[in-house]
């Protein structure tokens, strides 16, 4: 199953690692955590009219990579990643110059509100689309996320799908040590979301099983808790907080490439 997605992933992860190496930049672990979800969304799930907001804007490089692979942005744009005078900074652009990136993000706690607003707009515009957003577990610390959750369920935004990239690591610690989000399913259910769990959010079959279960007829916003691994696919990065920040040395880059060829 999903062999084509695996091929796409192979290509994307090499692009992504190269982008980070060339830029000598961090946030690699955060991008690898949600790369598979992004690939699944853009190559399998999203319809032409559907929309996406990356709430965890620090995984921008993964989004740029997948958008380029899907032909939704010009591949040449990637060459400017992290350079002076680029549209593609470390976090997504707020300039509305790239049609595929409706909102720039980077400060946590905005994505669910923005997505809820896009979902809510259909009540007035009569357009039909679903809106997907990826939140980090750090996003779930922000009060504004829960304001948005109250709003989304009150207005029965069944076209809203929030995906939690639940890798258990946040900016400066494990979520269990900082703010334990568990019981996370109960939290979202108590906010009247229809909640699904992808037992392995880095596995396309698990993601497919989960997305196939989505019920669009029950008038509830949806939340997919995707259990992921920070730094997924690079052995020395997996489940390590420091790969939120560190750039790769030449040796580390070579090893990361080798593991993903």
């Amino acid at each position: 199953m999903n062999d084509n997605l695996k091929e796409i992933r192979k290509s994307c992860i090499l692009t992504l690692l190269s982008l980070y190496k060339k830029a000598n930049a961090g946030h690699i672990g955060s991008s690898l955590s949600c790369l598979d979800i992004l690939i699944f969304l853009y190559f399998k799930q999203l319809n032409a009219a559907d929309k996406f907001v990356l709430s965890k804007g620090h995984a921008a490089a993964a989004l740029y990579t997948v958008l380029a692979k899907a032909g939704r942005i010009n591949k040449k744009l990637l060459d400017s990643f992290y350079m002076d005078g680029t549209f593609l900074a470390a976090h997504t652009p707020c300039n509305r110059q790239i049609k595929e990136i409706i909102f720039g993000t980077g400060s946590l706690g905005h994505g669910l509100s923005l997505s809820s607003g896009l979902a809510f707009a259909t009540k007035f515009t009569n357009k039909k689309y679903n809106i997907y957003t990826i939140l980090s577990d750090g996003d779930c610390d922000e009060g504004s996320t829960w304001e948005a959750a109250l709003f989304a369920s009150q207005h029965k935004l069944s076209n809203l799908i929030a995906i939690i990239d639940n890798n258990g690591l946040q900016g400066f610690g494990r979520t269990t040590d900082v703010f334990d989000l568990e019981p996370l399913v109960d939290k979202w259910e108590s906010f009247n979301f229809d909640v699904y769990v992808a037992t392995n959010g880095n596995d396309f079959n698990s993601l497919e099983d989960t997305f196939n279960q989505l019920d669009f007829n029950n008038n509830k916003p949806k939340c997919i808790i995707a259990n992921t691994t920070k730094g997924n696919g690079v052995s020395y990065m997996e489940n390590k907080m420091e790969w939120h920040y560190l750039p790769m040395s030449d040796e580390q880059f070579q090893q990361a490439i080798k593991e993903n060829q």
């Binding site: 909102f103 923005l114 607003g117 896009l118 707009a121 007035f124 304001e147 109250l150």
Partner: peptide, 20 residues
């Protein structure tokens, strides 16, 4: 929008992108 000013402003921004 309830007593949720942060959400209200972000929702408004999203509505504006849809021409509202």
């Amino acid at each position: 929008m309830g007593v949720s000013e942060q959400n209200m402003i972000s929702v408004a921004a999203a509505l504006a992108t849809e021409g509202l």
